[in-house]
């Protein structure tokens, strides 16, 4: 079977600063200037107060594993060679949640509420994913 290319993020104009930052090894999220709400994923308006007055801030990159799974069979075509890999929902210290992968550890050692910090994994020259490793 021909190797299937990894899916790259289907980005939007207003989310490009996020992907520009990950390429530079930085994790950024949005903050509402009017109500201070931290926002991820990048939005057009503040989900808390409807404001369009939103700025980018660098996140601490630290958080915990809210939940996770080790994919060992029946992955999508582009990920068959990666098995076993860990998919996790990470809660950043800033209070936002994001889907990611847990890397640089034995998948069997991952657990709920495990402290993690951000790392970066490039898919190609253009896109780098924020992933997480044990703190």
């Amino acid at each position: 079977m021909a190797k299937v290319e990894k899916p790259i993020p289907e980005t939007n104009t207003w989310t490009e600063p996020f992907w520009d930052a990950t390429r530079e090894g930085k994790l950024v999220i949005q903050k509402c200037v009017d109500c201070d709400q931290k926002i991820f994923y990048p939005r057009l308006i503040c989900p808390s107060c409807f404001s369009q007055n939103i700025e980018w801030i660098e996140a601490s990159g630290k958080g915990t594993v809210y939940t996770y799974t080790v994919v060992v069979n029946n992955a999508p075509s582009a990920f068959l060679d990666d098995m076993p890999y860990v998919v996790a929902v990470v809660r950043l210290d800033e209070g936002v949640q994001m889907l990611s992968n847990i890397v640089e550890c034995d998948p069997a050692s991952v657990h709920c509420d495990m402290p993690v910090k951000v790392a970066f994994k490039s898919i190609n020259d253009e896109y780098t994913l924020p992933v997480f490793k044990p703190l």
Binding site: P7, N12, T69, A78, V89, L99, C112
Partner: peptide
């Protein structure tokens, strides 16, 4: 499944269900 925020991480229906199952068990 969101093409910008989840598909690039290998998310699919089994992993979606597994994520809820893991936390629910916990």
């Amino acid at each position: 499944i969101a093409k910008e925020w989840e598909v690039p991480f290998g998310q699919h229906y089994s992993s979606v269900a597994a994520l809820a199952t893991q936390r629910y068990k916990y």
